[in-house]
Design a protein around this nucleic acid. Structure first.
Length: 581
RNA sequence: GGUCCUGUAGAGCAGUUUGGAGUGCUCGCCACCCUGUCAAGGUGGAGGUCGCGGGUUCAAGUCCCGUCAGGACCGCCA
């Protein structure tokens, strides 16, 4: 090594030692006759003292330097108790500039806010900054912890292909042209779902992998086109076994990195409860404001709008004090989410306000506070119509209320499992679509009957939710061809279609497939929560912007005509796949 | 595909409401001064297609139209 010590490791007990440090010039304080340099490396930073004759005046921010000198305790009165190395300094005897640095596009030191655009453009400098570097280091520590847990539990780490077959999952595939077979394309995996099930057939019994997944959909703060999953599958297990493992992993990570002890076992909530009480399948339990179901309450109402299959409400504490402009703002907010508006009643000391109040009877208004839990000074927001849509609107309003009113305890952790989601939901065209994926099994009590009443059947599935964000989800899978066939029938997938799309899985299931189940964690999201980041981009070394652009490399780029020809982008497949009989 | 926010010196911002000379702040950068600082200090200086294009106007950073980029959200993402 070029250096003998990490700058951040120096302490008074090193006094008297000759050391060589290597790192970057973080700050310089040039007094003419004496020059102080804070030399930073991955371990921290230390003060180096130069005298006039050492010629340190030419050192500039972020020069990469090697310094040799003697550690000494600082002169009395000059210690800096705010710094870990503040008791000592290195008196330089020689300095070598390993490389110079051009003037920086943004400051490395200090807490200056820098636009994400330029941080990503110069990501290597951003990561030199404390915050971005720490996020990646925390992610690394957490990753090791996951491997520890999995190793302790005898899981087999298996890598699955990234160049694979397009499979009919939910998202759009990224496609890769195949030079060796012009006209044919690989797809990048949306997840290793089918491979991990094959590994169960293969008898590995306990598989895991930290792996990239790819989905060609529009991006968000918590979505990137390529992202990392902890992918897990286990044989001969029940739902509780997988959930116990999931809690062990997340529990270890939170305990070892944040010192936070996860409740054990984690609370569980049914999907039905989550929708009814929080209007979400991933409720944020860091604050209350539960929804009130007023369908029964308004069953006899003369107000047309409330003559609906569902009427619900959510209370905004202190909301009656809002200005007309703020209340109108809620209407815009609701319309931007595709709703017609957001009816509201203001509960005041001396009565009720808001445009809806006059449409309600004395009795309806009189019992409203009790029915919703509203107090004088609060606003009650209503949604009426389709049960699911209305609840989702109220759930979104609840979150908005939580944010606007500062009800969310940012220091709190709210972990829970949401279980018993429906297997199917209407696809809007008279058929059914899988809520989870088509290989998810029904809860045992629906095993024989789900095809008769698909809307009622519950899936043997579970989602881990943290602070209102889904961080992991899984299910006990179907392992019998007969049951799989019935699911396909509900989904309107013909035998031929199933055969051509994932015949390889169905074939594997002919050879003694074990009962199995698993889970996948969105590792970027987990790390985002762990580090308190606003976006998963903060825990990804080289992320892409919302339009899928990488400001650092400039990807994606056009290709040359030659590349296009060679890749076979425009080629037609040589022969059609054999038509199903 | 849609809605909203943002774009002014290397960085972070103010100025845009009500059009009047690129007007300004903090940091950084360059030169010089300075022997105990640690967000060092002092003096001086450089640095601007006001995202881009068009329009209105005697006059546009400011008003209008379009467009590009970034961000948030809806749709979408099992």
């Amino acid at each position: 090594m070029i250096r003998t010590h990490g700058a951040g490791t120096l302490r008074p007990e090193h006094a008297g030692q000759q050391v060589t440090l290597a790192g970057w010039v973080a700050r310089r304080r040039d007094h003419g006759g004496v020059v102080f340099i804070d030399l930073r490396d991955a371990s921290g930073s230390a003060q180096v003292v130069f005298r006039e004759e050492d010629d340190a005046h030419g050192l500039r921010s972020e020069y990469c330097v090697k310094v040799t000198g003697e550690v000494r305790t600082r002169p009395a009165g000059n210690e800096n108790p705010d710094l870990p190395t503040g008791g000592v300094e290195v008196v330089a005897t020689s300095v070598e500039v390993l490389s110079e640095a051009a003037p920086l596009p943004f400051p490395i030191e200090g807490n200056t806010e820098v636009s994400e655009e330029s941080r990503l453009r110069y990501r290597y400098l951003d990561i030199r900054r404390q915050q971005a570097g720490d996020a990646l280091r925390t992610r690394s520590r957490a990753t090791y912890l996951v491997h520890e847990v999995m190793r302790e539990r005898d899981f087999v780490y298996v890598e699955t292909p990234n160049l694979t077959r397009s499979t009919p999952e939910g998202a759009r595939d990224f496609l890769v042209p195949v030079r060796l077979q012009p006209g044919n394309w690989y797809a990048l995996p949306q997840s290793p779902q089918l491979f991990k099930q094959l590994l169960m057939v293969a008898g590995l019994e306990r598989y895991y992998q930290l792996t990239k997944c790819f989905r060609d959909e529009d991006l968000r703060a918590d979505r990137q086109p390529e992202f990392t999953q902890i992918d897990i599958e286990m044989s001969f297990v029940d739902q509780d076994d997988v959930m116990e493992l999931g809690e062990a992993i997340i529990g270890r990570v939170w305990k070892e990195t944040l010192g936070y002890e996860l409740p054990s076992p984690l609370p569980r909530m049914t999907y039905a409860d989550a929708m009814a009480r929080y209007g979400s399948d991933k409720p944020d339990l860091r604050f209350g404001c539960e929804l009130a179901d007023l369908t029964e309450y308004f069953s006899g109402t003369t107000f047309r709008v409330f003559q609906a299959p569902y009427v619900g409400a959510v209370v905004m504490p202190g909301g009656a004090a809002q200005t007309r402009k703020e209340l109108d703002g809620w209407q815009d907010w609701a319309r931007s989410r595709g709703a017609r508006g957001l009816a509201y009643v203001l509960v005041q000391e001396d009565g009720f306000g808001g445009p809806v109040a006059k449409n309600l009877s004395e009795t309806e208004l009189g019992g409203l506070a009790e029915a919703t839990g509203a107090k004088p000074g609060d606003a009650v927001f209503f949604a009426a119509g389709d049960r699911h849509e209305s609840r989702e609107l109220l759930g979104a309003a609840r979150l908005e209320i939580g944010r606007r009113c500062g009800l969310i305890d940012e220091s709190a952790w709210s972990f829970l499992w949401v279980v018993d989601a429906p297997m199917f939901e209407p696809d809007g065209e008279g058929g059914w679509t899988a809520v989870h994926h088509p290989f998810t099994g029904p809860k045992p009590e629906y095993a024989d009957t789900f095809q008769d009443n698909p809307g009622e059947a519950l899936a043997y599935a579970y989602d881990m939710v943290c602070n209102g964000m889904e961080i992991g989800g899984g299910s006990v899978r179907i392992h019998r061809a007969e049951m799989q066939q019935r699911v396909f029938e509900v989904l309107g997938i013909s035998k031929e279609e199933a055969e051509s799309k994932f015949g390889f899985l169905l074939e594997a299931f002919k050879y003694g497939p074990p009962p199995h189940g698993g889970i996948a964690y969105g590792w970027d999201r987990v790390c985002m929560l762990l580090t308190g980041s606003e976006s998963i981009r903060d825990v990804i070394a080289f992320p892409k912007t919302a339009s899928g652009f990488d400001p650092l490399t400039g990807a994606p780029t056009p290709i040359t005509a030659e590349q296009r020809k060679e890749a076979g982008v425009d080629a037609k497949p040589r022969a059609q796949e054999p038509a199903p009989a």
